[in-house]
Simulated scan of single mutants.
Amino acid sequence: YWPSSIIEKVRANKEITLTEGARQTVGLLYKDNQGQFVILVSAYDVQAHKRLYTLSIIMLLLFIIVSGALYFISRWFAAKSLEPIGVVIKQMKSIRASNLNQRVDEGSGRDEISELAMNFNKLLEHLENAFDLQHAFVINASHELRTPVTSLLGDIEVALQQPRSANEHEQLLHRLLNDSKRLKETVNILMEIARADRDYTKANLSPIAIDDLLWELQSYWTDQLGKSALKIEFLQLPENQENLLLTANKSLLIIALNNIISNAFKFSNNKPVKCILLADDSHIDIHIKDSGIGIPATEQDKVFRSFYRGSSAKTYPGSGIGLYVTEKIVHLFDGNIQLQSVPGKGTTFIITFLIKK
């Protein structure tokens, strides 16, 4: 049954094991007093092969079951992890031009989905403010231009109805002059809103030194009202001068600050106005303080509304749009604006910007 080569191999090695197909063979060299004998034994392990077959079937079934379980578990985890994205997408789809004040849920985590929602909300805020400025321009144009133009036309028509004396012509010319001044002021306001809207939509940002900007404003108001009109005070400055740099649009900042300063002069009959700077390594505060008529406590939360004019401001010229535009601009650069006022003593506007590290 076995070739001589196998027998000789057993004699040489004294003991061997080998596989012949499905059979296992053992060879052994046996010595006794009668001589040396080569013993070869071969067998087929039926039970081992059955166990191996059963084990392979079990492993195959386990592989199928585990793979299926992993598939469905991974699908469940994927659905749960993508669920916040689905909620955000659903909320995004519900936002239209008519409800730009709506915001998507930012969640409570710090993952990529929350960051996406926060950036989308910032974009919505910018769009809302831009739409509000455009809406304010259109409404203000139709509302403010109509009154002085109608008054001008009425005075001219009355003057042409019959001959007038020199005194009557003088009075008429005074009224026309006042209406013309009001019309000019209205046009200037509209130009300011249009400029703010243009810069707002462009949003060209650059580092601006707040202290230098305040000196520029003082120079401007010195040319307008005199040397001591706008007083600048630096009560606190940071050790690092770079913390006086604010990433913003310079034109918009000038519009926002000048709106407050011009109101301060107007409602105080051109009395000196203080502009105080307090800054450290975490924030920049700008206080603009006047000694004017003040704002009643019941009206202080309304002054930033579009076209709102307080009861004490009715006798002063204006459109009620300046502070509205100012608040929009301050919020654009992640700032905050608030006021403190005592009727008859004056008002202080406080603008705060946080330093972004």
Rank of each mutant, 00 (worst) to 15 (best):
S262V: 01
N269Q: 12
K274C: 02
F265W: 09
F265R: 07
A248D: 15
C275T: 11
L245C: 08
I254G: 01
Q236T: 06
L277P: 05
N259L: 03
A279V: 10
L277G: 07
E242G: 15
L225N: 14
Q241T: 12
E233P: 01
S228K: 13
N240R: 07
K231A: 11
D281Y: 06
K227F: 14
A229D: 08
Q218G: 02
Q224E: 14
L213D: 02
V273K: 14
L278C: 06
L225H: 15
L257W: 02
S268G: 10
T247V: 15
A248W: 12
A279C: 11
L237T: 13
S262E: 14
N263T: 06
D285E: 11
I255N: 08
I260K: 03
A248Y: 10
V273A: 11
S228T: 12
L253F: 06
L257A: 07
D285R: 06
L235H: 11
Q224P: 01
K250S: 13
D223N: 12
H283W: 01
S268L: 04
L237H: 04
H283R: 13
D280Q: 08
F267V: 10
N243C: 06
T222V: 03
E216W: 02
I232T: 09
T247P: 03
S262R: 08
I284V: 14
S251R: 11
A248K: 12
D285I: 04
S268V: 01
L217Q: 13
L213K: 02
S219P: 00
N269I: 04
L244T: 09
A256M: 05
L230V: 12
V273C: 12
L257K: 05
D280E: 08
D285A: 01
I232F: 07
I286G: 00
I284Q: 06
Q224R: 13
K274V: 03
D212G: 03
I286M: 00
S219W: 04
F267R: 00
L252R: 08
P272W: 00
L225G: 00
L253C: 11
I276K: 08
P238S: 13
S228G: 03
I254M: 11
A256Y: 13
I232M: 10
I261E: 05
N269F: 10
I254C: 04
L252D: 14
D212T: 04
F267P: 00
D211Q: 12
L217G: 05
I255Q: 08
L257C: 02
K271Y: 01
H283I: 07
K274A: 12
H283V: 10
I260W: 02
L235P: 00
N243G: 03
S268Y: 07
Q236C: 03
V273M: 12
T247Y: 13
